[in-house]
């Protein structure tokens, strides 16, 4: 999509506010007030749910075989944010997770490492140590994850803690209550503040909790809101609610990052999280990436899977491709 094409839509929908079509600062004007931001977000094209889901399902029928499958499995492994976010997490558990991320398959050292481990802020230091030297990043949820129901200064303190402990990436949750109440600027300001707290070193993933936003129109608006506020990644969900990542909501977010880059030149990553458990599922998501955002996103700098049990299934499929026989859970490590 050319910037000119998109510009015509925003110019039309957004009166004279958008004056500079090709640069991000022009879009910054839309955040001048609650009402300008609302007008912008509500001026985004609508989403027809049936059509969106049909498209996602249709891409889900792609048949990925042999060499393509081998490529996809290794790519998927390299995109996993190996996650443990339990009240029962201990240093021992996190160390085990770090070891797994650095050496997913001890029997095959050609296996790629995962992209990151994802833990609560108080476990960042342990995780850092566990993955030291492996190239695996440490991501930390913050901002009163998963509900996000805390005062802004508490959320920021949470972020500062994680960053200070060495987190390379921060996974924040947006204030869904504010979003659903239409207080878009509040949500925006909070993301901007968290982004600032991340500093130059940590990349920011913004979690929308799509299951709570409920409509696809809301997910599209949240995506643009997050990107306008400076998100490095937009992420579907916490994994703690009934509906998490789905092919349809991820497809919608991929369309958003594609369109955002076309308009601003800024590339933003996407992270579906929760509910992706099998290699087959993961490959379907990679097909969505390939045919929606394109190959520029086929890299763990731009696409991640928030998952835990997915990794072992990927490893078993990888063993199957290597040996020709189906593997079993006794042949991958339990962590």
């Amino acid at each position: 999509m050319s910037a000119r094409g998109l510009y015509s839509r925003y110019a039309r929908r957004y009166g004279g506010v958008v004056t500079m079509p090709t640069s991000a600062p022009a879009l910054a004007d839309v955040t001048a007030s609650d009402s300008t931001l609302r007008r912008f977000l509500h001026g985004l094209p609508g989403v027809d749910a049936v059509g969106l889901e049909a498209r996602a399902a249709s891409l889900g029928t792609r048949s990925i075989k042999t060499t393509a499958k081998a490529y996809a499995i290794d790519l998927a492994i390299s995109m996993v944010d190996l996650t443990t976010l339990e009240g029962a997490d201990t240093p021992g558990k996190v160390r085990a997770l770090g070891a797994k991320a650095a050496h997913p398959d001890p029997t095959d050292r050609t296996t790629p490492t995962t992209a990151a481990v994802c833990v609560y802020p108080d476990m960042v230091a342990v995780a850092k140590e566990a993955v030291a030297g492996s190239g695996v990043k440490v991501a930390s949820v913050a901002t009163a994850f998963p509900a996000g129901r805390a005062a802004l200064d508490v959320k920021l303190a949470d972020v500062h803690d994680a960053v200070a402990a060495g987190a390379d990436e921060i996974d924040m949750v947006i204030d869904r209550g504010a979003f659903l109440a239409g207080k878009y600027l509040k949500v925006y300001d909070e993301i901007v503040a968290v982004k600032e707290a991340c500093g130059a070193s940590a990349r920011l993933k913004v979690i929308f909790e799509t299951g709570e936003l409920s409509t696809y129109d809301n997910i599209r608006r949240a995506s643009w809101l997050g990107m306008l506020a400076g998100a490095d990644f937009i992420k579907t969900s916490t994994g703690k609610v009934a509906v998490n990542a789905t092919p349809a909501n991820t497809l919608l977010m991929l369309e958003a990052v594609r369109d955002f880059r076309a308009q601003t030149g800024v590339q933003v990553g996407v992270k579906p999280a929760g509910g992706i458990r099998t290699s087959k599922d993961a490959i379907k998501f990679l097909v969505l990436v390939n045919e929606t955002a394109g190959e520029d996103w086929l890299d763990n700098h731009w696409f991640r899977f928030g998952a835990s049990s997915l990794l072992n299934d990927l490893l078993m499929q990888r063993q199957k491709l290597a040996t020709g026989r189906y593997s079993g859970p006794d042949y991958v490590t339990v962590d």
């Binding site: 792609r62 048949s63 990925i64 075989k65 042999t66 060499t67 393509a68 499958k69 490529y71 996809a72 790519l75 990679l286 097909v287 390939n290 190959e295 086929l298």
Partner: peptide, 8 residues
């Protein structure tokens, strides 16, 4: 593309 689908 990097992700070239093998014949199926």
């Amino acid at each position: 593309s990097a992700f070239e689908y093998a014949p199926a």
